[in-house]
Design a protein around this nucleic acid. Structure first.
Lengths: 344, 344
DNA sequence: TACGGTGTTGTTATCGTTATCACAAACCTG
DNA sequence: CAGGTTTGTGATAACGATAACAACACCGTA
């Protein structure tokens, strides 16, 4: 009683109901909502009143079904939202997508290939206009155009052999090379390497750059000091502990990503507290990490903005969607990284 | 020539096309795809072959239009994806949603009310089954049931006066109270406060807990040492610098969120490098921050898991959607925070 | 052989929206 | 004021998918 709500709960309001309420046809409502061309001003007002009285929202799914219309959705598959890096990445994608009037369907793959396959297939079913994927790194059959219904795809941060798609990468190799070189020039000769999963292309590229720089100085990586495959902070910490306990510990450590950097810093910090390490090794850290520069550990950061990476991926996608770039050839965009100076 | 692709680009494949290719009717395709009940085995095989030959994906938008079906989408509006905290939060939501077979529509509001309003309206138009919102804190007309088409809403991390919706909050007040008390018990008497925007309910609640503890020790906050409204790291850093330059600096500083904690640590670290501070103040930090415990600053963390917060919000939403909880009364879930010990 | 049941397939109608067409009224223009 | 154009409105069909119904073949049984 006294309920101002003309509709009861459950079923959502349709154009038809708004039309009845306003005493016009569905078409007049539709026209009014699409700008009001060829609708009398007073009728428009009646329609808008009905819309707000009933709390009507256009059904975008139904709209997008009509020929010519698109869903306005972009599918984004990320490996690990819990990593601040990918939060920034997602933000970059979201902001650019918003300026293009698109929304984001977000999925987290957790570095699991099956989940990535499932997510992408679902996204296609939901009629996304395009996909932005940080691939887990496995075989890419599910990333072939036929599996995607020929929707534009942009790979981000990592590339997949055999998949020809627009890709935004970091300048992994040259960044790692420059950083390592800088440390060698500073006199270090014994440098360890901490890396994430070998199947991830960034890991490979960064290791390459690392080795290149060593080779230039006539050095080769010491197998004892190369630890790869650490995907999270605890694993990275254990790896660093192992390095610190080496009978001939390195004077510098290259960390290939932010998880490894944090684990390494934790291990150094703990070892120092325990007194087992007095002069910590110098870190060469790929990826920015909040507070890393404030730790009492000499560090050289190879930095870049994950948000810029996401934004660039989105821009590449929209250049396809808007027909600004139509060549079937895949583009590769290398986002520059900046190698700083040794701090602290 | 030699093109194995029966369809050219552009238009997506429909049931009808699959049906023609397999020499059956659309219904037979549909039935096959829905489990194959009452479809001969050899026909099913023919259909599946056609599906994979044409690269067909069911149009989920069209499916969800049919009576009884739902979109399978959850709308999530977050204030700042660039903050690692909300990345973790989004991950918690995503993981729970995935177990319920739902996908996530993600929007970033950037703490802008107009953007939040627009996002939510769009989400409703896209037929989301429910909404999870970290509100910016402004007036909540757009969060009233009528504006949402009576879709279930869960507010997370912050509440809005006048909006009756299921809400997941942190135990802000008691966490701040306990943390502050701990520091007072340790002998501190001059404690500063760094907080984010006053319009945000968490900021208010944490300040309340802070004041309560002070009052219990017969103290009142010193207006000179209460700086609120810092929403990002640079602003927080400037605020902390101001505090450090005070003629009678505090021996402890309460930081109400992770942005303020990082800014404060940066300021302390810089001041120490510059020699203007020798004994840093003890920090009471709400929110976990990676590496904060490894800095050479005594710190007491009031910690909790943002992912758990997101997961709990999602569970509350699904308890509505699945009809496990039907009361019109709004629930409030208080996620416990844990107050640690003073470190370093 | 007639009959009910079951299993397999196709036809029709519908979901919410809007482009297209149809039509009437109002507005020009000479 | 005849003839044409513009403006405002409604009816119909279509987008892709699938419940509901209809149709038919085939089985076993009386």
């Amino acid at each position: 009683m006294g309920d101002a709500e003309p509709r009861t709960a459950g079923g959502r309001v349709t154009v038809k109901e708004v039309a009845d309420y306003a005493g016009v046809s569905a078409m007049t409502v539709s026209r009014t909502l699409s700008g009001g061309k060829n609708v009398r001003a007073d009728v428009q007002r009646r329609v808008m009143d009905a819309v707000s009285a009933l709390g009507y929202h256009r059904n975008e799914n139904a709209r997008s079904m009509r020929p010519g219309h698109t869903s306005g959705l972009i599918g984004v598959a990320i490996t690990n939202l819990g990593n601040p890096y990918y939060g920034g990445f997602a933000l970059g994608v979201e902001e650019v997508a918003a300026t293009y009037g698109r929304r984001i369907l977000l999925g987290n793959t957790g570095e699991v290939l099956a989940r990535e396959t499932q997510l992408i297939s679902d996204f296609v079913g939901r009629q996304v206009e395009g996909l932005i994927v940080v691939p887990t790194g496995g075989a890419g059959e599910h990333l072939q155009p036929r599996a995607l219904g020929h929707i534009p795809l942009v790979l981000a941060a990592r590339s997949i052999p055999g998949v020809s798609a627009d890709t935004v990468l970091l300048d992994d190799t040259s960044g790692a090379y420059e950083g390592t070189k800088r440390i060698l020039q500073a006199g270090h000769r014994r440098v360890a390497f901490l890396g994430n999963s070998v199947s991830v292309s960034t890991a490979t590229r960064r290791f390459e750059g690392f080795c290149q720089a060593l080779a230039e100085f006539g050095l080769a990586p010491d197998p004892d000091l190369v630890l790869r495959g650490q995907q999270d902070v605890p694993a990275a910490r254990r790896a660093m502990e192992q390095i610190l306990q080496h009978s001939a510990p390195p004077t510098a450590v290259f960390s290939a990503n932010n998880r490894n950097t944090i684990g390494a810093l934790e291990a150094i910090s703990a070892a120092r507290d325990a007194g087992s390490v007095t002069t910590p090794p110098t870190l060469i850290a790929f990826d920015d990490v909040e507070l890393a520069n404030q730790m009492n550990v000499p560090i050289l950061t190879i930095s870049h903005d994950p948000k810029a990476l996401g934004a660039e991926a989105a821009r590449m996608l929209f250049s396809r969607l808007d027909g600004d770039f139509t060549s079937s050839e895949a583009r590769i965009f290398n986002l520059a990284v900046s190698v700083g100076n040794i701090r602290s």
